[in-house]
Design a protein around this nucleic acid. Structure first.
Lengths: 256, 256
DNA sequence: CGTTCCCTTGAGTAGTTTCAATACTTGTGG
DNA sequence: CCACAAGTATTGAAACTACTCAAGGGAACG
């Protein structure tokens, strides 16, 4: 993992833990070369706004990004992205997004033009398929969010969010024993779970009282991960991690 | 529209109202040729089950299909598809789906092998991009569902579902004045909106009392469409209809 | 003409929102 | 170093929304 970041400092986390092994070194180099310019953000800033025409896409290198939609004075979070995510690759085909991309906390991103992606589409169908795959991962996560919003109440919803982010950070080597560190605040969690910040606070208190998870200003400590996952009915298959759905055998070209 | 179905009986509705105009006649013919075998279903049947390895994709020709996820004895609906939708095109890149595809009512579908799609990926980058686009439409719809689950209560949720399905049926020429006809039952609507069937029934009663929409065994009558859309805070831009986000000018190759 | 599926209604309980008020934390300037 | 401000987190009480359990009504199909 450290090797990947040495070799590919800007895109070394892309699809790590998922289908990165299906990429040849040449393809990894191609992806790395796609990202020309980088930018760093402090505190909440809008990377890309809903409806704005756009001809480049963004690789998240460090930090967190939220997908948000505003409606009637309020903001709703419809997705969260972690390092290694090609956060608006779908803008290549959509041209204008239906949602906003906003950073929270410090973040570092890289940009690539759609012209360069277009070249990849023409020259390397295998890599094109992997790029497509990465956008479909987001869709799979969206579906799980829908399901969990339908199924769970606030305490389990936020517990599920914790489990998902932890697993995704694990994929890219950013996990930590006993929990995770995020730039999230309770208001963000509320907007992800479709509740008010006040109710989210009570939900978090409940998780704390029951010894499931302790959220304190972005730092999430979990005494017993398995227990939290069971509580949240978290099943990671929808994240298409290596081996989970037999993905590795399907698209893999080379073994590490 | 009728012309499209005469020329392309199995895929004439694909991307109709969205980017179908961006396809050349040759590309439309290519898509039509992708679908070799067709099948018809009566009443609820599973087209594709979560986790099952699969090497073909499904075009919905007639009828409705639900995307469902089962968890703890219950079923949750995370998406609905209408004629013209390439319902599991994403299985081409994912290989196994994270959800089930089930028909409701009568449905007719066409199948295409992933080998054939692979050829398109290599031979026609422009068409590949349109196929990609169509899977991203689903993701955009997922995001709107998340947002509406977070934002709205049961009566407005189901009103929003009505508005969306109506708009999507309009795209493919299946709208009707004063409402729509679907094979949906109240239980399905409940599973889409994350409520119980009993509560959905009360929500529907409320819409009926307020003269917003009258749901009766799949038939939905709406006295005033604009009023319903306003009530549900329905904004169709996320469906990427022609012209709405200036799509037509962006990817279009020919004008009709 | 009865079974089955679908829809409807009532009453009590649990979960969530709103409004209002109070603390804690962090960073900034005096 | 302290005081203050801004952002973040916490608590209480009343009103609303949704769920569960239980029972009954209606339409379609054989």
């Amino acid at each position: 993992m450290a090797d990947e970041l040495d070799l590919y400092p800007k895109t070394g986390r892309f699809l790590e833990g998922r289908l990165r092994d299906a990429m040849s070194e040449e393809e990894k180099a191609t992806v790395e070369s796609l990202v020309e310019e980088t930018a760093e953000f402090e505190s909440p800033e809008v990377i890309l706004e809903r409806g704005v025409l756009c001809n480049r896409s963004t690789m998240l290198i460090e930090g967190f990004v939220l997908r948000t939609i505003n409606s009637g004075e309020k903001r709703y979070v419809v997705g969260v992205q972690v390092p290694g995510d090609f956060v608006d690759l779908h803008a290549f085909a959509l041209k204008r997004l239906d949602h906003n991309l906003v950073t929270i906390g410090k973040a570092k991103v890289g940009f690539t033009t759609h012209d360069r992606i277009k070249d990849v589409m023409s020259d390397n169908p295998h890599l094109a398929r992997l790029l497509w795959f990465s956008t479909l991962l987001d869709a799979a996560i969206h579906r799980e969010w829908i399901m969990k919003l339908e199924q769970l109440r606030a305490p389990k919803r936020v517990a599920h969010v914790f489990c998902e982010i932890w697993q995704r950070l694990d994929f890219v080597g950013l996990g930590r024993d006993g929990g995770i560190d995020t730039p999230l605040i309770q208001q963000d969690l509320a907007e992800m779970c479709g509740t008010t910040a006040i109710h989210m606070n009570r939900a978090l208190s409940q998780l704390r009282e029951e010894g499931l998870a302790d959220f304190r200003r972005g730092r999430i400590d979990v005494p017993d991960r398995k227990r939290l996952e069971k509580y949240a009915t978290f099943d990671s298959t929808y994240l298409y991690g290596e081996g989970v759905l037999g993905m590795r055998g399907e698209l893999s070209l080379s073994t590490p």
